[in-house]
Amino acid sequence: MKTRSLGYEIAMTALVLVLIAGIAGALLGLVNHFTKVDAEELVARKATAVYKGELKSFPLQEGISQQIQFEGGRVFGVYVPKDPSVQNVYVLCAEGTGAYKGKLSILINITDGKIKSIAKYEADETPGLGSKALQESYFKQYYDVAITPDFAGFRLVKTAPAVSSEVKAISGASKSSTAVTNAVNAAALWYKTVILKGGAQ
């Protein structure tokens, strides 16, 4: 067998690898063009879980976010319906700390000062345990409680709730229940401060 020079061998090996990588890169670029999901679209798609209809971004009012922030959570996105005839509907993306793996975030639909629906946005709780705090049966406890200017927030309890602002924690999932409550309270505080009191005070 004819022995090839070192240079030839190096060049051929490199060429083949570069060609394979180049074709692979081109293919991925093509696929990416058709499957691109931008962040805005992702939120809007997830938000359909709590509001059926097109949404547009609503200013978060960064200047006052300092006062709105409280220890347990924060609101990181607010959306309102595109349709101008629909008033008083806010879809909030809120994050709560204290979850099993640190944080979780949920979507909250506040219509006419009351929470109408909640859905999971991003959470990684233990299936069968923490995940129970991300189900409709648990979320229901927050619904239809009027958020007034002096609303003090939801309180997590371990026994049967006595008042409407008390929420019974899921047994075995205290951490996840706490994180959801934190996120809901962050949303309620944002609503109170920005919408009910009309901004910075």
């Binding site: 083949v16 690898l17 394979i20 692979a24 293919l27 991925l28 990416n32 499957t35």
Partner: peptide
Amino acid sequence: PAFVVIIATFVTVVQMVMQKF
């Protein structure tokens, strides 16, 4: 390395398609 590049390409395709649909 050639195998890994080929496999990684197809995995990324699956990932992109799954994320979208």
